[in-house]
């Protein structure tokens, strides 16, 4: 059994909280798309917001990342990941809306 990080006690609580939050954040977009109670653009915004919160939940509860300045490496990795995601997601949105405008 590997030693828990930072010498702290590993409990099952954060994992359960994370799993429940992740499930709720997945159920909301599915429900919205299935039932269509809102206008499409509003649904898009909710899906995007739940996706971003989902990322934060995974980082916080499963990967145990926090904002303490204890680990520079983690921060660098996180910043790099954020930049790459910005390029990929931002680029995709740019390309897709552009194509949509011209072809649809």
């Amino acid at each position: 059994m590997p030693a828990p990080p930072h010498g702290g006690e590993v409990t099952i609580r954060p994992y359960l909280v994370g799993a429940v939050l992740a499930l709720v954040l997945t159920a909301i977009p599915f429900g919205l798309v299935a039932a269509r109670p809102l206008r499409p653009i509003q649904i898009f915004i909710v899906i995007g917001a739940t996706a971003i919160i989902q990322v934060v939940v995974h980082l916080r509860y499963f990967l145990h990342l926090d904002l303490k300045p204890s680990s520079q490496n983690k921060l660098i990795a996180l910043c790099f990941g954020a930049v790459v995601l910005l390029i990929l997601v931002g680029g995709t949105l740019w390309i897709m809306f552009n194509l949509n405008y011209r072809l649809m």
């Binding site: 390309i95 552009n98 194509l99 011209r102 072809l103």
Partner: peptide, 18 residues
């Protein structure tokens, strides 16, 4: 290499900007 993927589908019909 993470930021140039579009050159595989120039012909798909994106605008000149893209």
């Amino acid at each position: 290499s993470l930021s140039i993927w579009l050159h595989h589908f120039f012909t798909m019909g994106a605008s000149p900007d893209v």
